[in-house]
Computed example of a mutant assay.
Amino acid sequence: MQLPSEPPPLRIHVVEDDDDIREETVFALGELGFDASGFGDAAGFYRALVVAPCDIAVVDIGLPGESGLSIVAHLRALRSIGMVLFTARSTLDDRVAGLRGGADAYLVKPVDMVELAETLKAVGRRLRASHVASLPAAAPDAAAAAAIGAPAQWSLHEGGWVLSDPQGRRMTLTATERAWLGCLIQRQGSAVSRDDLIAALGGDVFDFDQHRIDAIASRLRRKADRLGMRLPVHSVRGTGYVFAT
């Protein structure tokens, strides 16, 4: 009898601007059985997400440029990614703000690596238990659809980071594009308001440049056109956008 295979190790991205802390944390997590990588700022982290999405991000709040709280706000719509804040800020207000902002856990430095590891395992268990229920049902890709006689559809793959069309062409998405397009595909055929799209991006409807919504749509259409894909994203006057074939 074939035994069930072990799940792959959790992939962890550590976003920490202190070189020593980042390197020590990545090394310790590797020794404890995780697939860990480190990044010094938000920009490097976002670039890595496009190439190799992580299961959980361990994020320092006090980063140069974009803060850890901002990263959590941008990624909170991506429910397949866990987020652990890892910071020297220890006040109750800081902890409450981090958890309300979307973090799964809040750890105050210095953190024992065993405690961090157990926290990551707990978040990972929750993610894996809810993964199927939390993601929209994936449509079969072109090859699979042909094999079972079902019509191929537009669908998201690889945790939502790759969009495929009915002909099997594929387009890799950035974190912003993934959140924006994922919101539309979850409600395919129904108009999605600008406010809902802003919320999916982790923005504040009262302090958000509305032109960014249109800029994302335009950028996605151009990317799709270069790949020979006709992206079925349509503007709905006075409302927002709809994904409708």
Score class of each variant (00 low, 15 high):
Q153F: 01
L197F: 11
D35N: 15
R194C: 03
I12D: 08
L63I: 03
E6I: 12
M113A: 11
R222C: 01
A117T: 09
A147E: 11
E31S: 14
G30A: 15
Y106D: 07
R76S: 05
G102H: 06
L127W: 07
A42P: 06
I61V: 10
G168R: 04
A52H: 15
R221H: 13
G168L: 03
K223C: 01
L135Y: 00
S218Q: 10
I61Q: 00
S130L: 12
T239V: 15
K121G: 11
R126Y: 08
A143L: 01
H157Q: 13
T25L: 13
A142V: 06
S164K: 08
L107G: 03
T91M: 01
I56E: 06
Q210G: 12
R95C: 13
R219I: 00
R226E: 13
D209P: 03
A200G: 06
T174S: 15
V96P: 04
H131P: 00
I216W: 10
I216N: 03
L220S: 04
R79D: 08
L197P: 09
T87K: 03
L120P: 13
R226S: 13
Y46C: 02
Q210K: 11
F34M: 13
A42G: 04
G82Q: 06
A137C: 02
R89V: 00
A146Q: 06
A77I: 01
G40M: 09
S70Y: 01
I213C: 01
R221D: 05
S164F: 05
G44C: 13
E24N: 14
A200M: 09
T239H: 10
K109I: 06
Q153A: 15
R100W: 03
A77V: 01
S155M: 07
A215L: 07
L201M: 10
A215E: 08
L220W: 09
D94E: 14
D196K: 08
V59S: 08
E66G: 00
L99T: 03
C183I: 02
D209S: 09
V14K: 06
G240D: 05
A133I: 05
D214M: 06
T25D: 11
P64F: 01
M229W: 05
A88P: 03
E115A: 14
A145F: 00
S193Q: 10
A122I: 12
R212E: 14
A73Y: 03
P4I: 05
L156D: 05
